[in-house]
Design a protein around this nucleic acid. Sequence first.
DNA 1: GTGTGATTAATACAGTTGTTTGAATCGAAT
DNA 2: ATTCGATTCAAACAACTGTATTAATCACAC
Lengths: 221, 221
Amino acid sequence: MTSTPVRGADTRTRLLDAATRLFTERGFAKVTIRDISAAARTNLAAVSYHFRDKAGLYEEVLALGLRFAQELNAETMLPREGHPPEERLRHYVRQYLPRIIHSERRAWIYRLLRHEMADPTPMATTYVRQAIMPRIEFLIEIVRELLGDAATDERVRRCVTSIQAQCLFFLPDPFKNMVAENWQPDTAERIREMADHITDFSLAGIRATAGERRGPRVRPR
Amino acid sequence: MTSTPVRGADTRTRLLDAATRLFTERGFAKVTIRDISAAARTNLAAVSYHFRDKAGLYEEVLALGLRFAQELNAETMLPREGHPPEERLRHYVRQYLPRIIHSERRAWIYRLLRHEMADPTPMATTYVRQAIMPRIEFLIEIVRELLGDAATDERVRRCVTSIQAQCLFFLPDPFKNMVAENWQPDTAERIREMADHITDFSLAGIRATAGERRGPRVRPR
DNA sequence: GTGTGATTAATACAGTTGTTTGAATCGAAT
DNA sequence: ATTCGATTCAAACAACTGTATTAATCACAC
């Protein structure tokens, strides 16, 4: 018989699953432990028993999400040495964008991240340090290579910001849907096209930054 | 004597001022009417008396912000007919970006918008329709001109998204500061530089989109 | 001054939320 | 079967929040 393994472990994972789903949907503040315990088909006090308190449960959820994010990062930053920077950038965006847009499997963390950005919890700083910073560093390296001799800290920073902004824009957001229903690419095909657009658009922008003849300085000559 | 003009009007404006400040800082949900009435140095019940309820007060704040946003839009979209699209884009970004970044005078609305995006109230839809959509339409027109013969709905949409993303990225955000303390341009000089970067970067991206020799299709030839 | 309507203030009320408490229940070793 | 530690449960508690109620206060016309 499939007897219950440790008894308590079952409801513990049920709580963890329910919390992951609900926190991802609504963020830490807008989920009550009553919601969670109901969704996990258990009692209110179970949260306190298994996870100390609501914050403890959230920490565990986010810790799991952080591990997933690091796994995904590793895949996103795969082709490191040797390959030309253009190719690495394209790979980066093609990996990153679909995960941000519709969060399959492990990528629910990006939706949770959206809430973390709007309303940070104490866990935010460690997430930034361990999951975001490495990706930024990776982007910096690519852009520095692309700029070549023209690379200055300032230019690199600006170009990285432009790329990062174009990607982050696609974090799921109820508000954007109000602006334009179906601007958000939905199918894998259209997401791929958008990723290529961002890549080509940015490569051209970077080349222009390297070429650097600026627009009208103070007054348009 | 500076006698009280209408008596009630004074506390009404004090409430409105305090509510504007607090809602802008924390958003609708995270401000209590106790906070507001305390900041306005009046009683709890004053909110209900002068504005029906908390939502009524918020509506009035957002209605004022919407008027400001429309004023600012008018200035942002000033040089319409005749001028070349490059110049109009540069003007657009140079106007829009500093307002988004550090919200002087009437531009507190953009910080309130940030909260509205994270956690929309019923007012969100009218704000989108009356303040955001016109600006998007304006951008679409510029990009369509820039793309010229190459303009398709799809390409226009993607390029507008890229520009919009680069600008919106600079909405004030506690989270971004964790990633990199001083990446956010602060002085008027650096904001101007960033605006020109976005403009040049995007113009190059749009030209590349128009030229349209894509990156490696399925396999890199 | 007195009454009147508008405004301000103090308090009560009901609902929600995180947490704690103490009893009930379960599985298994003795 | 009994006992014991782990787990589950129901209930209660305390804090907070939006709103309603009721009384106090004010400016001013009469």
